[in-house]
Write a protein that binds this DNA or RNA. Structure first.
Lengths: 338, 338
DNA sequence: TTGAAAGCGCTAACAG
DNA sequence: CTGTTAGCGCTTTCAA
């Protein structure tokens, strides 16, 4: 099939009249090489179009120069907008440090708990960034126990050897709730994402806290326990609007859910935002295009990804005793839905 | 840092009282292993949590079991919705055949023409899927010349050793134009994407052809030469609506462009679709949420990705003399913008 | 500033 | 059905 000539470091060495070791030194930049020798080696490399065998190099040096990114399969699709943005940031960071990125989709709550540890055992990756993991995932615990280098994206997990980059969800909820209050809303419902994600929990708790600090009651029957999913939010929020007494505002745990809730509200014959205000979270691409356009909390998703990548790469250089635990600021984006 | 015990195949062999070769046979399933021997080996593997060293295996077998996916950097973001969907399909196909996926972002029209060939030279990948490449990209030509296994996604390139999966753009344009004609539109403009992408060319040519077949004039000044980009479509389409005589329909080369054009039309004080109908292409996620929701041509993007992956994997099994050249059907999705 | 020797952990090829 | 031998192409280590 392919007709690539296979030049090895030995060929280059012979042709340049030096040993393989000298070529290796020249290539890595580690160790001295005489100017004239370097010039000759470079000339031969160019002439042959030589590319070092990455597998041999990695096997010998015990560094794969690859970082893995695990992403959950969601609704049959691999990548929602959130994941795509995060991946973008991670990849940027990796490439700028000469690492490659390998994708590892996984099914939450399924499969071998050692699934990710084994990626290290098999020397497939040097480090791992995990996006959107679930609370209590045994796989994370095992990675931490083995002191493997990994970073969590948007998942808070306070434990030794666990590093994460996340946003301040409570601040986000404060922004949202206080904005709604200022607008005169008092009957505020909350539609939550999967509580196995720390984001969902933090947002719900944040919502509760800010409401109470403002002397407002949080009605238990106005907390909807859903998932980060448009369709499920659409289904589960139905009862909120079947009564004559409905909320005058709904805070949603993310944008996809807000879209589902808005659809539900319209079908109940109510208007957004006149009858019911709705807010989202994330500021995904489509948030600006929904009808009405979403008022939401913007997360710097790509930046989160980049920071996660950089944190990991720092970890690979030298392990860090004190865990990195960054909570980035969010901002309120006011559009039309509230 | 990490404290993973490093068990090798030799350890397993010794412990199971066999040779490394027998363990290797057991692991690969190639070659016979006695039932009882197999049982003993499995027991030892489990006990040690042994994972074969992927690098050693690949170095020896000369197969990396990795396929690369090249994606163009677009507007600073790595992944637009189209790319995300395609990547999803490719990854699905790869994983189901026990291959891993590595990401290789690249800047169109920049960098070493050997950039991708070198991925093969360095044994980083066994095959490559390229998404959204530009016509005449030297990198593609070099891959083909070296007879390397690669597949193009949404890029038609008729040449030996070049395989591609694309859609029938002309059929898409027929759907769109004939729909517009049926609706009574006659003054139809076209806003094109970057003509270095074969998709853009095929859509423009298809548009022309169908218009002419229906006896309609294509006004040169109503062809806008833009790029696959919302902002640029917004800017370049301005003049279409500054005259008193404007088109009553605009066919756009993709959905992002349609969004830009709609914005422009609104700012010109016109209504969509009452004054000007607008159509897109792709049916990306947000197409259903724009205001008005987009009438567009749906491509089975994820399926394209999956087919590309499968085509590549077949190529890796045995090279194929006759190039795969699939053009998938598209369908018209009528919403509100036309 | 350079080189020789020894391996990294696995599999291909062949022999038994 | 199992084992031996000889690498794969590089880097590490030590010596010169």
């Amino acid at each position: 099939m392919s007709k690539l000539s296979k030049t090895t470091i030995a060929d280059i060495a012979r042709e340049a009249g030096v040993s393989a070791m000298t070529v290796s030194r020249f290539l890595s930049g580690k160790g001295p090489v005489a100017k004239e020798t370097a010039r000759r080696i470079q000339e031969v490399i160019d002439r042959f179009g030589y590319q070092p065998n990455y597998l041999a190099r990695s096997l010998s040096s015990k560094k794969s120069m690859v970082i893995g990114v695990t992403i959950p399969r969601i609704e049959h699709a691999l990548l929602d907008n959130y994941l795509a943005q995060a991946l973008s940031g991670i990849t940027d960071a990796a490439l700028s440090h000469d690492y490659r990125v390998m994708l590892f989709p996984f099914n939450p709550n399924e499969g071998d708990p050692n699934e990710f540890v084994n990626l290290f055992r098999s020397k497939m990756i040097d480090g791992l960034v995990m996006v959107k993991t679930l609370h209590g995932d045994e796989r994370i615990r095992l990675l931490a126990r083995h002191q493997l280098p990994f970073v969590l994206v948007n998942h808070k997990y306070y434990a030794p050897n666990v590093h994460f980059i996340d946003v301040n969800n409570e601040q986000g909820m404060r922004l949202v709730v206080e904005y709604l209050l200022k607008k005169g809303h008092r009957k505020i419902a909350f539609v939550s994402g999967d509580l196995r994600e720390t984001n969902a929990r933090d947002r719900l708790n944040g919502f509760r806290k800010v409401m109470e600090q403002n002397g407002l009651e949080v009605r238990d029957d106005w907390i909807v326990y859903g998932q980060f999913n448009r369709q499920i939010a659409y289904e589960k929020s139905a009862y909120l609007f079947s009564d004559s007494e409905h909320p005058d505002a709904v805070v949603c745990s993310d944008d996809y859910m807000a879209i589902g809730v808005i659809q539900r509200i319209k079908e109940a014959g109510l208007r957004v935002p006149e009858d019911v205000a709705v807010t989202g979270f994330d500021d995904i691409e489509i948030a600006a295009y929904t009808r009405p356009a979403l008022t939401t909390v913007r997360q710097p998703i790509e930046k989160i990804g980049r920071l996660a990548g950089e944190t990991l790469l720092r970890l690979l250089k030298k392990s860090n005793k004190t865990p990195t635990r960054r909570l980035l600021k969010v901002e309120l984006v006011v559009r039309e839905s509230a």
